[in-house]
Protein backbone atom coordinates (compact mmCIF):
# COMPACT_ATOMS: atom_id res chain seq x y z
CA UNK A 1 0.00 0.00 0.00
CA UNK A 2 1.85 3.05 -1.26
CA UNK A 3 -0.22 5.69 0.54
CA UNK A 4 -0.13 4.20 4.02
CA UNK A 5 -0.56 6.91 6.71
CA UNK A 6 -1.07 9.66 4.13
CA UNK A 7 -3.94 12.14 4.21
CA UNK A 8 -5.33 13.08 0.79
CA UNK A 9 -7.65 15.96 -0.10
CA UNK A 10 -9.57 15.59 -3.35
CA UNK A 11 -11.74 18.37 -4.78
CA UNK A 12 -14.71 17.44 -6.94
CA UNK A 13 -14.60 14.06 -5.27
CA UNK A 14 -18.32 13.31 -5.29
CA UNK A 15 -18.38 11.70 -8.71
CA UNK A 16 -16.49 11.01 -11.92
CA UNK A 17 -12.70 11.10 -11.91
CA UNK A 18 -12.52 12.44 -8.35
CA UNK A 19 -14.52 9.54 -6.93
CA UNK A 20 -12.38 7.08 -8.91
CA UNK A 21 -9.22 8.61 -7.49
CA UNK A 22 -10.69 8.50 -3.97
CA UNK A 23 -11.47 4.82 -4.31
CA UNK A 24 -7.96 4.04 -5.52
CA UNK A 25 -6.38 6.02 -2.67
CA UNK A 26 -8.48 4.18 -0.08
CA UNK A 27 -7.30 0.86 -1.53
CA UNK A 28 -3.73 2.12 -1.12
CA UNK A 29 -4.14 2.92 2.57
CA UNK A 30 -4.71 6.68 2.56
CA UNK A 31 -7.18 8.61 4.66
CA UNK A 32 -9.25 10.49 2.10
CA UNK A 33 -11.20 13.72 2.27
CA UNK A 34 -13.48 14.40 -0.68
CA UNK A 35 -14.96 17.86 -1.24
CA UNK A 36 -17.74 18.87 -3.54
CA UNK A 37 -20.58 21.36 -3.87
CA UNK A 38 -22.94 18.43 -4.40
CA UNK A 39 -23.51 17.27 -0.83
CA UNK A 40 -26.03 14.57 -1.65
CA UNK A 41 -23.80 12.75 -4.13
CA UNK A 42 -20.72 13.38 -2.01
CA UNK A 43 -22.23 11.79 1.07
CA UNK A 44 -23.45 8.83 -0.96
CA UNK A 45 -20.06 8.34 -2.62
CA UNK A 46 -18.28 8.38 0.73
CA UNK A 47 -20.70 5.71 2.00
CA UNK A 48 -20.32 3.58 -1.10
CA UNK A 49 -16.52 3.65 -1.19
CA UNK A 50 -16.30 2.82 2.53
CA UNK A 51 -13.15 2.92 4.63
CA UNK A 52 -11.41 6.01 5.92
CA UNK A 53 -13.19 8.47 3.64
CA UNK A 54 -14.89 11.70 4.70
CA UNK A 55 -17.04 14.13 2.78
CA UNK A 56 -16.94 17.91 3.21
CA UNK A 57 -19.26 20.23 1.34
CA UNK A 58 -17.22 23.02 -0.20
CA UNK A 59 -17.46 25.50 -3.07
CA UNK A 60 -13.86 25.88 -4.25
CA UNK A 61 -14.52 29.32 -5.73
CA UNK A 62 -15.47 30.70 -2.29
CA UNK A 63 -12.29 31.70 -0.46
CA UNK A 64 -13.87 31.76 3.01
CA UNK A 65 -15.40 28.31 2.60
CA UNK A 66 -12.10 26.93 1.34
CA UNK A 67 -10.15 28.39 4.28
CA UNK A 68 -12.66 27.09 6.82
CA UNK A 69 -12.83 23.62 5.29
CA UNK A 70 -9.06 23.24 5.10
CA UNK A 71 -8.74 24.46 8.67
CA UNK A 72 -11.23 21.94 9.99
CA UNK A 73 -9.66 19.11 7.97
CA UNK A 74 -6.21 19.94 9.36
CA UNK A 75 -7.66 20.09 12.88
CA UNK A 76 -9.35 16.74 12.43
CA UNK A 77 -6.61 14.85 10.55
CA UNK A 78 -3.59 16.91 11.75
CA UNK A 79 -2.13 17.25 8.23
CA UNK A 80 -2.74 17.08 4.48
CA UNK A 81 -0.03 15.28 2.48
CA UNK A 82 -1.70 15.05 -0.89
CA UNK A 83 -3.88 17.52 -2.77
CA UNK A 84 -5.73 16.56 -5.92
CA UNK A 85 -7.19 19.60 -7.65
CA UNK A 86 -9.83 17.81 -9.65
CA UNK A 87 -13.00 19.91 -9.40
CA UNK A 88 -13.99 21.43 -12.69
CA UNK A 89 -16.94 22.32 -14.86
CA UNK A 90 -17.64 22.87 -18.54
CA UNK A 91 -19.92 25.41 -20.12
CA UNK A 92 -19.39 24.86 -23.83
CA UNK A 93 -20.35 27.40 -26.45
CA UNK A 94 -18.82 28.74 -29.61
CA UNK A 95 -16.95 31.92 -28.89
CA UNK A 96 -19.49 34.04 -30.78
CA UNK A 97 -22.19 32.90 -28.39
CA UNK A 98 -20.07 32.83 -25.24
CA UNK A 99 -21.03 35.50 -22.72
CA UNK A 100 -18.71 37.04 -20.16
CA UNK A 101 -20.64 35.10 -17.55
CA UNK A 102 -20.05 31.79 -19.39
CA UNK A 103 -16.38 32.61 -19.45
CA UNK A 104 -16.13 33.73 -15.84
CA UNK A 105 -18.07 30.84 -14.36
CA UNK A 106 -15.59 28.32 -15.77
CA UNK A 107 -12.49 30.33 -14.88
CA UNK A 108 -13.81 30.94 -11.34
CA UNK A 109 -14.13 27.27 -10.56
CA UNK A 110 -11.47 25.56 -12.67
CA UNK A 111 -8.67 28.08 -12.32
CA UNK A 112 -9.38 30.39 -9.39
CA UNK A 113 -10.71 27.45 -7.37
CA UNK A 114 -7.49 25.53 -7.97
CA UNK A 115 -5.51 28.56 -6.83
CA UNK A 116 -7.60 29.04 -3.67
CA UNK A 117 -7.43 25.43 -2.53
CA UNK A 118 -3.70 25.14 -3.26
CA UNK A 119 -2.98 28.36 -1.39
CA UNK A 120 -4.99 27.25 1.63
CA UNK A 121 -3.23 23.88 1.83
CA UNK A 122 0.35 24.71 0.85
CA UNK A 123 1.14 26.52 4.07
CA UNK A 124 0.92 23.32 6.08
CA UNK A 125 2.75 21.36 3.39
CA UNK A 126 5.61 23.89 3.52
CA UNK A 127 5.74 23.56 7.30
CA UNK A 128 5.85 19.79 7.25
CA UNK A 129 8.33 19.80 4.34
CA UNK A 130 6.26 17.31 2.41
CA UNK A 131 3.55 17.46 -0.20
CA UNK A 132 2.23 16.01 -3.40
CA UNK A 133 -0.03 18.17 -5.52
CA UNK A 134 -1.65 16.81 -8.66
CA UNK A 135 -3.72 19.15 -10.81
CA UNK A 136 -6.18 17.74 -13.28
CA UNK A 137 -5.72 19.69 -16.50
CA UNK A 138 -6.84 18.44 -19.92
CA UNK A 139 -5.42 17.87 -23.38
CA UNK A 140 -7.64 20.72 -24.57
CA UNK A 141 -5.45 22.99 -22.44
CA UNK A 142 -2.62 22.00 -24.77
CA UNK A 143 -4.33 21.79 -28.15
CA UNK A 144 -7.55 23.80 -27.78
CA UNK A 145 -11.03 22.70 -28.75
CA UNK A 146 -13.83 24.47 -30.63
CA UNK A 147 -16.65 25.39 -28.26
CA UNK A 148 -14.39 25.20 -25.22
CA UNK A 149 -12.45 28.46 -25.24
CA UNK A 150 -13.30 29.03 -21.57
CA UNK A 151 -12.53 25.46 -20.48
CA UNK A 152 -9.34 25.24 -22.56
CA UNK A 153 -8.12 28.59 -21.20
CA UNK A 154 -8.78 27.43 -17.63
CA UNK A 155 -6.88 24.18 -18.22
CA UNK A 156 -3.98 25.94 -19.93
CA UNK A 157 -3.99 28.27 -16.93
CA UNK A 158 -3.74 25.28 -14.62
CA UNK A 159 -0.66 24.12 -16.53
CA UNK A 160 1.11 27.47 -16.04
CA UNK A 161 0.01 27.49 -12.42
CA UNK A 162 1.38 23.98 -11.93
CA UNK A 163 4.81 24.91 -13.25
CA UNK A 164 5.04 28.08 -11.16
CA UNK A 165 4.00 26.25 -7.99
CA UNK A 166 6.49 23.47 -8.77
CA UNK A 167 9.31 26.00 -8.96
CA UNK A 168 8.27 27.83 -5.79
CA UNK A 169 7.83 24.68 -3.72
CA UNK A 170 10.57 22.39 -5.04
CA UNK A 171 12.94 23.31 -2.21
CA UNK A 172 10.35 22.23 0.35
CA UNK A 173 9.98 18.65 -0.83
CA UNK A 174 6.64 19.39 -2.45
CA UNK A 175 6.07 18.18 -5.99
CA UNK A 176 3.43 19.73 -8.21
CA UNK A 177 2.41 18.03 -11.42
CA UNK A 178 -0.50 18.15 -13.82
CA UNK A 179 -2.14 15.44 -15.79
CA UNK A 180 -3.87 16.08 -19.09
CA UNK A 181 -6.56 13.48 -19.73
CA UNK A 182 -7.91 13.14 -23.24
CA UNK A 183 -11.23 11.42 -23.75
CA UNK A 184 -12.15 9.53 -20.62
CA UNK A 185 -15.52 7.82 -20.25
CA UNK A 186 -17.23 9.99 -17.61
CA UNK A 187 -20.40 12.04 -17.23
CA UNK A 188 -18.57 14.94 -18.85
CA UNK A 189 -17.96 13.05 -22.12
CA UNK A 190 -21.15 10.96 -21.98
CA UNK A 191 -23.14 13.91 -23.30
CA UNK A 192 -21.18 14.11 -26.56
CA UNK A 193 -22.98 12.99 -29.73
CA UNK A 194 -21.95 9.76 -31.47
CA UNK A 195 -20.74 11.83 -34.37
CA UNK A 196 -18.33 13.79 -32.17
CA UNK A 197 -17.21 10.59 -30.44
CA UNK A 198 -16.46 8.89 -33.77
CA UNK A 199 -14.52 11.95 -34.91
CA UNK A 200 -12.30 11.90 -31.83
CA UNK A 201 -11.82 8.15 -31.91
CA UNK A 202 -10.11 8.63 -35.27
CA UNK A 203 -7.65 11.04 -33.66
CA UNK A 204 -6.68 8.59 -30.93
CA UNK A 205 -3.95 6.20 -32.09
CA UNK A 206 -5.05 3.59 -29.55
CA UNK A 207 -8.56 3.73 -31.00
CA UNK A 208 -10.44 3.82 -27.71
CA UNK A 209 -11.43 6.17 -24.91
CA UNK A 210 -9.74 6.00 -21.53
CA UNK A 211 -11.33 4.84 -18.30
CA UNK A 212 -11.48 6.63 -14.92
CA UNK A 213 -9.28 3.79 -13.66
CA UNK A 214 -6.50 4.88 -16.04
CA UNK A 215 -6.63 8.37 -14.57
CA UNK A 216 -6.65 7.04 -10.99
CA UNK A 217 -3.53 4.94 -11.69
CA UNK A 218 -1.54 7.91 -12.98
CA UNK A 219 -2.69 10.19 -10.18
CA UNK A 220 -1.75 7.51 -7.65
CA UNK A 221 1.76 7.35 -9.07
CA UNK A 222 2.18 11.14 -8.93
CA UNK A 223 0.73 11.27 -5.39
CA UNK A 224 3.04 8.55 -4.10
CA UNK A 225 6.72 8.56 -3.15
CA UNK A 226 7.49 6.62 -6.32
CA UNK A 227 7.41 9.91 -8.23
CA UNK A 228 9.54 11.92 -5.77
CA UNK A 229 11.92 13.31 -8.43
CA UNK A 230 9.17 14.42 -10.84
CA UNK A 231 7.83 17.96 -10.58
CA UNK A 232 6.38 20.64 -12.86
CA UNK A 233 5.37 18.10 -15.49
CA UNK A 234 2.23 17.72 -17.56
CA UNK A 235 1.55 14.10 -18.37
CA UNK A 236 -0.94 13.34 -21.12
CA UNK A 237 -3.24 10.42 -20.65
CA UNK A 238 -4.94 10.20 -23.99
CA UNK A 239 -4.17 7.02 -25.90
CA UNK A 240 -1.53 8.90 -27.88
CA UNK A 241 -3.77 11.72 -29.14
CA UNK A 242 -1.29 14.48 -28.27
CA UNK A 243 2.39 13.80 -28.73
Amino acid sequence: MVLESKVAFITGGASGLGAGIAKKFIQEGARVIICDVDAETGTKTAQQIEGNIHFYKMDISDEEQVKKTVESVVNEFSKIDILINNAGITNDKLLLRMTKQDWESVIAINLTGTFLVTKAIMRDMIKQRYGRIVNIASVVGLIGNPGQANYAASKAGIIGFTKSCAKELAGRNITVNAIAPGFIETKMTEVLSDEVKQYYLKLIPMGKFGLPEDVANLVLFLASDQSSYITGQVICLDGGMVM
Binding site: R123, I126, K127, L169, G171, R172
Partner: peptide
Protein backbone atom coordinates in the same frame (compact mmCIF):
# COMPACT_ATOMS: atom_id res chain seq x y z
CA UNK B 1 15.83 32.23 0.13
CA UNK B 2 12.73 34.17 -0.88
CA UNK B 3 10.32 31.50 0.36
CA UNK B 4 12.20 31.37 3.69
CA UNK B 5 11.60 35.07 4.18
CA UNK B 6 7.87 34.60 3.59
CA UNK B 7 7.84 31.68 6.01
CA UNK B 8 9.64 33.83 8.61
CA UNK B 9 7.04 36.57 8.26
CA UNK B 10 4.30 33.96 8.64
Amino acid sequence: DSLDTVELIM
